[in-house]
Amino acid sequence: MPNLMKINLAIISAVMLLLFGFITPATATTLTVTNVRLPSGTPFDLKITGGIFGSNVRSVTHPYAGQILLDTQEYGTVATWCVDDLHAIYLGGHYSYTTGILQTDNSGGTVSGSNPLSGQQIHDVMALVSYGNNLLYSTPAGPNHDLISGQIQAAIWGVIYAATVTAISGTDPVGALAFSQGVVGLRALAPSLSPGNAFALFNLDANGLILSQVLMGSFVPEPTTLALLGIGLAGAFLRRRRIA
């Protein structure tokens, strides 16, 4: 197994939007992750302020903010994003993830012990996940790919934590400012986007304890594999909640 590198602030929630019905415990799907990859990440260090963090400042070092690819035994590569700041996932790691519904920010030791999300937050996260995956799929590898990957991830964190996410760079302040403005633009765009086929992934023990980062992802491009997973439109029943 390759050397493990912690992906700081890179947790992604696990909600599966199935095409023809709501997810229930009986239809939950398990994915055996054989490798965790971060092919592209932000060119800037990031800081997260406000929201649930209050006056505390959380930070993530480049390039560890961006799309995370999971190689799975069951469905090939699944493109995911971090929706969990307080748990870890490791590059090269092996995990067992189960699909479920995104309901909280997963900031606690368990899903139920975390802050509930509003229906708008859930929609916007799912929309950014689907939009980001499709956008990166059509963008060639290179600086633009890294920039988009970092901005999508930053926007997701901003929505999840009701916080402000900005880029920091002493050598490229203009680029960092443009990056931060792009994140604001993505958050403003999210309500108008479709949640697509986004889904959540949880790695929990028998008592519901979160063992590794909760991820949220989708298949790219629109896959026939979704039918195999029994995926159905869940967005309609998502209830509005407030962050405590």
Score class of each variant (00 low, 15 high):
residue 203 N to G: 02
residue 115 N to V: 14
residue 169 S to W: 01
residue 13 S to P: 10
residue 221 P to Y: 10
residue 236 A to D: 10
residue 160 I to G: 02
residue 47 K to F: 07
residue 138 S to P: 01
residue 229 L to F: 06
residue 184 V to C: 02
residue 47 K to C: 01
residue 74 E to A: 07
residue 224 T to L: 09
residue 220 V to Y: 14
residue 60 V to T: 09
residue 16 M to A: 10
residue 153 Q to Y: 06
residue 148 I to R: 07
residue 127 A to D: 01
residue 196 G to V: 05
residue 20 F to H: 14
residue 114 S to W: 02
residue 108 G to C: 13
residue 117 L to A: 06
residue 30 T to C: 05
residue 193 L to C: 09
residue 66 G to W: 08
residue 226 L to P: 01
residue 63 P to M: 03
residue 148 I to C: 00
residue 29 T to F: 04
residue 221 P to I: 05
residue 58 R to G: 01
residue 61 T to F: 08
residue 107 S to H: 15
residue 172 D to L: 06
residue 196 G to F: 01
residue 65 A to S: 15
residue 233 L to Q: 15
residue 186 L to V: 03
residue 33 V to W: 00
residue 213 Q to I: 00
residue 76 G to K: 01
residue 54 G to L: 04
residue 189 L to Y: 04
residue 15 V to S: 12
residue 222 E to Y: 12
residue 85 D to A: 13
residue 150 G to L: 03
residue 62 H to N: 11
residue 207 N to S: 15
residue 93 G to C: 10
residue 217 G to D: 02
residue 221 P to R: 04
residue 46 L to G: 02
residue 69 L to V: 14
residue 59 S to F: 08
residue 98 T to R: 13
residue 171 T to G: 03
residue 90 Y to V: 01
residue 98 T to I: 12
residue 166 T to G: 03
residue 159 V to N: 02
residue 189 L to P: 06
residue 218 S to A: 13
residue 180 S to E: 00
residue 19 L to A: 13
residue 100 G to I: 00
residue 154 A to P: 05
residue 111 V to W: 09
residue 16 M to K: 11
residue 23 I to S: 08
residue 142 G to V: 12
residue 149 S to H: 07
residue 194 S to R: 07
residue 235 G to K: 09
residue 91 L to P: 03
residue 9 L to Y: 06
residue 57 V to Q: 11
residue 102 L to Q: 09
residue 238 L to I: 15
residue 212 S to G: 01
residue 21 G to L: 09
residue 127 A to L: 00
residue 47 K to T: 11
residue 9 L to C: 06
residue 210 I to A: 00
residue 75 Y to C: 06
residue 150 G to I: 03
residue 50 G to M: 10
residue 110 T to R: 13
residue 195 P to N: 04
residue 219 F to E: 10
residue 10 A to K: 02
residue 243 I to E: 05
residue 53 F to Y: 08
residue 52 I to P: 01
residue 97 Y to I: 08
residue 18 L to F: 10
residue 136 L to T: 03
residue 3 N to F: 13
residue 123 H to I: 03
residue 147 L to W: 15
residue 181 Q to L: 15
